[in-house]
Design a protein around this nucleic acid. Structure first.
Lengths: 152, 152
DNA sequence: TATTGTTATACTCTATAACTATA
DNA sequence: TATAGTTATAGAGTATAACAATA
């Protein structure tokens, strides 16, 4: 186990990430909010999937996921197809327009990252990706009984 | 410059951080929201400082900072002292109660991190801290039209 | 005139709970 | 009864703009 000071530093750095994400989101197309982009990216990567599975992958409540998807469906970027195995469920799929939007948004994000991280090596970027992936896994796959100790 | 695929992966991992932060914030005392904790931590680390400097360090707008500080001042965790050099300005300082609150909150956060990251080495945590610090710097110190950091 | 900090307003993202329609 | 998804409502966090006091 690391020292309290080190954990405090980590917590502090994590707190600062949203500001980075906000700056990054300035390069998103104006009609596609960052949260919607996240949905498009996950659906693109995983292919056809259900609402509940999408919510799980995004790690947000299904009610929120539902609203994001409705927003995307209104704009014709995502289709909600009936699930032949369960009529309560809907299968999500990117439309060609959705793929175009995702590609355009990713171009913007990539350009911004390439600009800001211009003196980072591929190795640096990769290492950060790996650590963030490990962090995410540690907090989601891990002890999921939900009711953590509220220490104070 | 890294590949578009690698940057896309990084963007995706960054998107997932708020979920980690939310889980982490469950270990905060219920009357101290995470954003307030961030303010306490910065003031504690930097000592007496002005609103504008605090906003800069938090990388959020001063109007938002003002509200957080007002919230903390109402609870007696922070003092807003008159600045002898500029009567428009106010100097912020943690009260003993604020220090207690910060310590208690950090204990909770530390416990949660120690639990979730129980199989991480100190080296892993340190490496993640360093990369996040570099990332933050790249997005704030970097190409910034107006952040001239007048330290005082 | 410019700057420091506050307040009013609005926007984004999220969670909880109540609801529907199937299973 | 239980589950998939939707909608209503509320809360946390942020930004922009208008403002008061001071420089």
């Amino acid at each position: 186990m690391a020292s309290q000071e080190l954990y405090g530093e980590l917590a502090s750095q994590l707190r600062a990430i949203p500001a980075v994400a906000r700056e990054l989101s300035r390069s998103c197309p104006p009609n596609c909010p960052p949260a919607s982009l996240g949905v498009l990216a996950v659906v693109s990567r995983h292919g056809e999937l259900r609402m509940s599975r999408l919510a799980e992958l995004l790690d947000i409540d299904m009610s929120v996921t539902s609203r994001h998807v409705a927003h995307l469906a209104e704009r014709g970027w995502i289709d909600r197809l009936p699930d032949p195995h369960d009529r309560r469920s809907r299968l999500l799929r990117l439309t060609p327009g959705g793929m175009d939007m995702l590609r355009a948004a990713l171009d913007g994000v990539t350009a911004s990252l390439a600009d800001h991280l211009r003196d980072w090596s591929d190795q640096d970027v990769l290492e950060l990706c790996r650590l963030l992936e490990r962090l995410r896994t540690a907090f989601t796959a891990d002890c999921r009984p939900r009711t953590q100790t509220i220490t104070m």
